[in-house]
């Protein structure tokens, strides 16, 4: 059993990606024995009214039990709260993703605090996408810096029941979080962007392997990258490997509530 906590459907404006519809994505992931995937809509990132992507994604994923869709919300856009309630109560979403950098707010923005409070009330989990692609070669008309994470430990402490998951965070984003997030049970780290020789093992042990989630960032990334890191490069015990590949994902969902 392998759960990919970071896969994408739909179109990315700056590169044509293959395998970006549900059927082809699942077939591609199955090539490396990934059974289930948590998917977001790439279309939502650049939409002004991001909620427009949530109903179609839910509908698309409904036909594929192996997919769990994750909604997208921009808490600086009007009526987001009503949209988020609709995501949970009508569309069946359990998780919601924020793109503070693409949607131009900081983690310290009061709107983000409100967002976490509502997600907490709704028993959802929250994903923060730290980046989407390598900043060094963004499109020149759309240069988007990564999310500044210094405010994260305080926010996570304020909502101890709310699972918060960092997506696409690199080593340099995560190292400063090791100390201030020590012992926090509600913070989760997806590993697709952890680099360096043995990086997932070394950084993962520092952050706590019980909070590392397997993720591929497919189809933007080759899913083989994450698979090789966890199953071949790093020296994990069988229990540790199972926790990363699916066990931790299950615990995250359970901790979010029904």
């Amino acid at each position: 059993m392998i759960v990919d906590a970071n896969a994408n459907l739909g179109n990315w404006p700056f590169r044509r990606t293959s395998y970006n519809d549900p059927k082809r994505l699942l077939e591609r992931l199955a090539r490396v024995d990934i059974d289930r995937a948590w998917v977001v809509s790439l279309d939502a990132v650049m939409y002004k009214n991001v909620h427009a992507a949530n109903a179609p994604l839910a509908e698309m994923a409904a036909e594929y039990p192996a997919l769990m869709p994750v909604a997208t919300i921009n808490p600086t856009f009007p009526a987001w709260e009503r949209d988020l309630v609709e995501c949970k109560e009508s569309l069946g979403y359990r998780g919601v993703r924020a793109y503070p950098n693409y949607h131009q707010y900081e983690l310290g923005d009061p709107a983000f605090d409100d967002f976490l409070a509502v997600a907490d009330d709704l028993d959802m989990f929250v994903e923060i996408a730290v980046r989407m692609t390598d900043e060094r070669h963004h499109h020149p008309l759309c240069m988007v810096p990564p999310v500044e994470l210094a405010a994260l430990p305080d926010l996570a402490a304020k909502y101890p029941r709310l699972p918060i998951m960092l997506i696409n965070a690199k080593n340099t984003d995560l190292v400063p979080l090791i100390e201030p997030t020590e012992g926090m049970e509600n913070l989760w780290f997806e590993m697709s962007h952890i680099e360096g020789t043995g990086g997932v093992e070394q950084l993962g042990r520092s952050l706590g392997l019980e909070h590392i989630l397997f993720g591929t960032h497919a189809p933007y990334y080759y899913p083989e990258s994450a698979i090789l890191k966890v199953t071949r490069e790093c020296e994990f015990s069988e229990e540790e490997q199972e926790a990363i590949l699916y066990g931790n994902a299950g615990r995250l969902l359970a901790s979010a509530g029904p």
Binding site: T197, Y222, S225, A226, L228, E233
Partner: peptide, 17 residues
């Protein structure tokens, strides 16, 4: 480009292609 990069992530560019 190891050790700054993971052999695994980089190998995937060929094995996954």
């Amino acid at each position: 480009d190891a050790p700054g990069r993971s052999f695994a992530s980089q190998l995937s560019k060929v094995t996954g292609a």
